[in-house]
Every structure is written in C-alpha cells, then in structure tokens.
Design a protein around this nucleic acid. Structure first.
Lengths: 191, 191
DNA sequence: TTTATTTCTTGCCTTTTGTCAAGTAGATAT
DNA sequence: ATATCTACTTGACAAAAGGCAAGAAATAAA
C-alpha cells in the first residue's frame, strides 16, 4: 500500500502541529523503493534525498584512511534518513547510504524541502526537531563510546535495535561498534 | 569593548545573508560575562541561553553512571554554545556548561530565538547552519573515537585546539578523549 | 551438485588501556 | 609557615582489544 499513513503519524509524533498541516507536508513526499544492497547515495554525489524510511534497514558507511569500510550508522524503520552534511551544504558526500534489506518510504528533494521550509511554518518546527533528534542520537553514541566497553555497547544495541543484528553482517556491526570482527565474534560467544 | 563586531562577522561567515539582516540579528543579542568556573547551565535547569562565545574557553560535562565527571565537549571562542537538548526540547538538562576561563559574549533566550526564527527568514538559515555544524562536529568526534587511538586523538586535539590543553586540567581532557588520567599522562610523556 | 566466495570463528601472541596505589609538585587556606 | 588540597606522575599488574592466520560454516555462483 502506498498511502502515507505511516509518514503522517511519524510527523505528528515528532511535532505538535495540526493534522491538516501534517497531511499537506506528507503529501509533498514521493513514494520510492530501494532494492537490497542498492544505494540511496554514493561517495562524491551531492545528496538530494530527504528520505522517510517506512520499512527496511539501511546504513551509512565510508572508507577510512586505511581504506577499510566503516559503518557510521544504521537506520531502522520509521525514521528520516539523509546525509546531513552533503544534503544541507550541497557538497560532495564522503559517505554512502545503502539499503541492507529492501526498503520502502517517501522522499523529497532539497528544493522541495526548502519550499516547504519557507512556506509551511509547521515544517520548520518539524525540520528542526529532526535535526535535534539526530544530534542527540549522535551525542549519545559518543557518550557510549567513551563510557561503555565494547561488550556493553553490543548488549545495548542488541536490546534497542535487534533488527540490526538480525539482518546486518557482523563486520558492519563490528565497525559500527568500533571493534574488529574477531573481537565482536568473541564478545558474542561469551553471551 | 561591547560592540557586536565579532558576532556580526561570525554570522556572516556562517550564512550568506545581507549585512543588514546580520546586523539586526546581532543586535537582538545581549552582552554577558561569565566568571572563571561559573556556570552558564546546571544540571536539572532548563537551558535558556543561546550563547555566542566571543572570548574564553568553556566545557559541558555530566556525571556518568559511576558518578564520575565526564567532559562531553569543549567550546572555544567564536562559536555558538548551548545545550541543544534542553534548550530546544524545554527539558531539564543532564549536563552542566561551565566557563574554564573568564568568558565574554552575547546571548538570546529561547523566546527571543523563536521570535527571530519566525520573523527573520535569514535567521532560519543561520539557525539551521549552526545545528548542521554542531552535528558534523559530533559525527567527526564519533569517527575519531572509532578510528583513532587515544594517542592520535590527543595529537589531533593538540594541533586543532591547543588552547584547550593550555587552560583545561588534564582530567577534563582525559575524560573528553575517553581515557583515564593515568593513560593521558603517559601518552603525553611519550611526546 | 560442485566450486568458489564471503562470513564468521578461534588460537596464539602483542599492544593498548585500565586499576590501584604511592609519591611528587603546586596551589590554597589557615 | 604549616597543613591541606588538588593536579599530575609513575610503577606493577590485570584486563580489554587488536593483528594475523588458519579453518569452519554459510552463501552464492557455475
């Protein structure tokens, strides 16, 4: 089904705005699907997708100085997915955004976002709330990296987002948690 | 001197807006000073300061589950300082914001920020740019925690923000880098 | 089905970082 | 000036995590 029920509810859960406003915002989005392993964004492209992920699992990753693939973040359903730096600053992305499983959702372009931003005050609050939400998530991740051991970080991921461990290969999870494959494999055994 | 030259230039460096707009925005801010070791925000308060730090050094910190003080971030001059979560979500802060050295700058309240946000389209772009900037900084920090050793993180801090190492006690820096005092002391010796 | 490829596990050994505790050096207070 | 703190350093040992390489297991391809 291609109605925007899920997106509408997501918007309403993020900011207190009228149902009518939320409806108009949701209707500006376009339905898209991404096949398993396909990309929403590739390195060196300028991101033009502000994407509401309705169902599926995605990740962002990039290559570090040693040429290894590092998973920066996972995205689970009912969230906004986009590469903030490239999208807002209109610069070439250093990161990839990839579908781990088949993904469905709704997107708008940078131009559409700005039109909404300038014409719909309600959308400004939404946009800001999303940025704040992502910032908080990033900060919490930092906190976890500093104050928790790899084992604790793994357990936390297991209890908060089990889907990730179900669908993502170990090496994605390992680089995300900041450990090697071997170490994660050993941690997992001890549980 | 209490003119807003520095703030004005900061605004203009962040977004491409007219000098007139930037001037009006800068004039909405109020000059304040914070004494060494004083707080801009304490735990359990609701942050009401969106603060442009003109000169001085600040930090945010909080207490972890073990009751230890963890420095989350340092702020150097010519930057916006505020506790995003508490300020935007109007909730009790878990963190403190403290002046390490004597600090000067200009602030506005949440209400003043929103008035600007709704009346001055140029300020919307500024506000968004600041959020994006902070998000990117947070992401880079995450990346460093995952891909760099404690020694490399220390060297990086030394080369990018030497003021911090000059004024902040070792224990602040250690918790910020995610190592113990002893470890940082040893790293430092080896250089 | 058989082969090839990728993913995951595991053993051995090294490096990094942590813990605890003692000690030094400075700063602050009385 | 003496005592009291706090910041920082250092030694001895323990724990956490990494590097490398060999194998097992699972997946994909032929």
């Amino acid at each position: 089904m291609n109605n925007r029920e899920s997106l509408l509810n997501f918007i309403l859960s993020v900011v207190k705005i009228s149902k009518d406003d939320a409806h108009q915002i949701a209707n500006t989005f376009h339905s898209i699907e991404i096949k398993e392993k396909d990309y929403l964004l590739r390195e060196k492209e300028v991101s033009d997708d502000y994407f509401y992920l309705e169902s599926g699992l995605m990740r962002t990753f990039l290559y570090n100085l040693e040429g290894e693939e590092i998973t920066i973040d996972f995205f689970t359903e009912d969230n906004i997915v986009f590469e903030i730096t490239s999208f807002f600053n209109r610069i070439h992305s250093e990161a990839y955004i990839q579908a781990i499983t088949k993904c469905k959702g709704f997107r708008i372009s940078y131009e559409e976002l700005n039109t909404l931003f300038h014409n719909k005050p309600a959308f400004r609050d939404f946009g800001r709330a999303i940025l704040v939400k992502k910032f908080i998530a990033s900060q919490n991740r930092n906190y976890g990296m500093i104050n928790r051991t790899a084992k604790e970080r793994y357990q936390n991921l297991l209890s908060t987002k089990p889907q990730i461990l179900q669908y993502a290969p170990l090496k994605y999870v390992a680089s995300y948690l900041g450990v090697t494959d071997s170490t994660l494999s050993r941690l997992r055994k001890k549980m």
